[in-house]
Write a protein that binds this DNA or RNA. Sequence first.
DNA 1: GCCAACGTTGGC
DNA 2: GCCAACGTTGGC
Length: 151
Amino acid sequence: MHYWLMKTEPEAFSIDDLERAGTEPWDGIRNYQARNFMRDDMALGDQVMIYHSNCKPPGIAGLGEVASQPYPDPTQFDSDSKYFDAGSDPEEPRWQLVDIKFVRKLKRLIPLDEIKQHADSLDGLVLIRKGSRLSIMPVDKPHWNYLLKLE
DNA sequence: GCCAACGTTGGC
DNA sequence: GCCAACGTTGGC
């Protein structure tokens, strides 16, 4: 079992949208490191923190879990999609995704600035590493537990 | 809206 | 393979 954090812009797709959808293909990831996590390291049942980015305030909004094996992101072949990738070969798709299932909303959003105040206890957490822009990242189990205690 | 940090592209 | 130019992310 692995633990993860996945960012989403709530204006585009929020934890409430995930709750309504139940399960959602996590499409549009166009970063190789993030793709590799989904393709190579995620397994059914892995737990995921859903993080709201590019909003006020940014922070952890809820929990989900990995609900599929990796499979090709269909938006890469959809010329009407903003995630269309003309360079991706259908025989060997460049972008893979997993489905994410809603688990629950947190009792309150845990804001980024509060998380940063616990930097000593969360040393190594990619989210608060300087300059990190990864949209999908692993979370150590102790960090996971610590973050949930802030809820 | 700004801009630092990072990733990607493409000429050479 | 280098690296400048450009695009994106995402906090502030």
